[in-house]
Amino acid sequence: MSWDYFIELFLGGLTRGSIYALIALGYTMVYGIIELINFAHGEIYMIGAFTALIIASVLSLFGMHQLVVLVLAVVLAVVYACAYGFTVEKIAYKPLRKAPRLSVLISAIGMSLFLQNYVLLAQTSDFLPFPKLIPDFEFWEPYSHIISSQELTIIATTVVVMILLTFLIKFTTIGKAMRATAQDKIMAALVGIDVNHIISITFIVGSATAAIGGVLIASHIGQINFFIGFIAGIKAFVAAVLGGIGSIPGAVLGSLVLGWTESFFTGYISSDYEDVFAFLFLVFILIFRPAGILGRSQTQKV
């Protein structure tokens, strides 16, 4: 139980938490704006990873530099995943905008199963090896025993994405319109905001961060299959609920808390019960804070 071991677990948890956060953002933003748990969100992440795999495989045939391959794979995965996120919303959710919430939820589950099976048929059910897209940086060599270049890249990317997203939501007109729409859709329409347009943008932004997460984790773990979206999606969903669904800082905090919980419990107690600890912790937090760590309680002022 040395200090080094603790640091290792801490950084491992931070890496996991970063990935969860990239996915959890999509859940929480979509929930914030249309009060829907978008069960197909994990699949968007999976599609991002598959797109990156295909692009990377093709590009490495031409013997391109690893970093060029990485950037192109990420960019195209993001574009592709955004197109899927946008289309899923238009096909499966928009026609149900005035339907009961349960109908939309079922539509989301249907979309999730559809996308999983579509990738299963189009690709394969086997695990596919994913190339190591993130290089080992030479300048990081002296410190790589503490944290690898891969993990460093994941954490740094997440931080950059969070800063950009915070800037978008807090300071740009589009971001303010997104918040206004989340708070009162009718009033948003009455000041001239095209609500459907804002909902589409929300899905696109959420899909983009999920795709970035998909590529990073696939490169880190080294293999993917059609089912990775389900597991990662559930974990990120838990993180979003833990932090308080609908709250963006909450999603990030919940993800980090979940990442560390998993990392420390597996490190100090047993790795067999990783998921058990994660979900036990969720139950524990929700007993004391039903709206999540940073969630707003649902009291309505009359």
Partner: peptide
């Protein structure tokens, strides 16, 4: 509108900005 429908979590200035959205 009836009931004013102020965006509750936007600041006063942001509410005004939203009025000029278009």
């Amino acid at each position: 509108p009836e009931g004013r429908r102020i965006f509750p979590y936007l600041s006063v200035l942001e509410n005004l900005e939203m009025g000029a959205f278009l």
